[in-house]
Simulated scan of single mutants.
Amino acid sequence: MNTRPILDSDEGPFVLSVSLNADCSCFSAALETGFRVFSSKTCDQKVAREVGGGIGCAEMLGTTSYIALVGGGKQPKFPQNKVQIWNDQTNVVATTLEFKTPVQRVRITQTHLIVVQLNKVGIYKMKIPPERVTEYETANNPYGLCELGKSTVAFPGRTIGQVKLFDLNTGNVSIIPAHETPLRALALSRNGDMVATASEQGTIIRLWSFPSCTKLAEFRRGVDPAAIFSLAFSPSGTMLAVTSDKSTLHIFDVGSTQPADSKQHKYGFLSKVPLLPRQFSDTYPTASVKFEMGDEPTTWGPHMKSATLGAGIPGVPGGRPTKGLLGWLDDNTILILGAGQDARWERFSIVIEEDTGNKIVAPSGWKRYLDD
Rank of each mutant, 00 (worst) to 15 (best):
V153Y: 04
T159S: 14
M194L: 14
T181Y: 15
L168F: 02
I175E: 12
L186Y: 07
M194C: 08
H179W: 08
L186C: 07
V195T: 07
G171K: 02
R184C: 15
I176W: 05
M194I: 03
L168H: 01
A154D: 10
F155R: 03
T152K: 04
L168G: 01
T152W: 04
L183W: 07
T170L: 11
V173I: 15
V195E: 05
M194F: 13
V153Q: 03
G157K: 00
L186D: 03
G171R: 03
L165M: 15
L186S: 07
K150E: 11
K150W: 08
H179V: 07
H179A: 08
G171H: 03
G161P: 14
R190G: 04
S174Y: 05
K150Y: 03
R184V: 04
F155A: 03
V163M: 09
G161T: 05
K164A: 14
E180Q: 12
N169Y: 10
S189D: 13
R184S: 14
P182F: 04
V173W: 06
L186M: 08
T159Q: 13
P177E: 08
P156K: 03
R190I: 06
A178E: 01
N191A: 11
P156T: 11
R184P: 00
V195I: 15
L188I: 11
I176A: 07
Q162P: 03
V163N: 05
L188D: 08
L183G: 02
R158H: 13
S151T: 11
E180L: 14
V173K: 08
T181S: 15
E180N: 14
R190M: 12
L188M: 11
G157N: 06
D193C: 07
R158Q: 14
T181R: 13
I160E: 14
E180M: 10
A187E: 09
V195D: 06
V153G: 00
N169T: 09
T152F: 05
R184A: 15
G192K: 03
V173N: 05
I175D: 09
L183A: 08
G192C: 06
R190K: 14
R158T: 15
F155S: 04
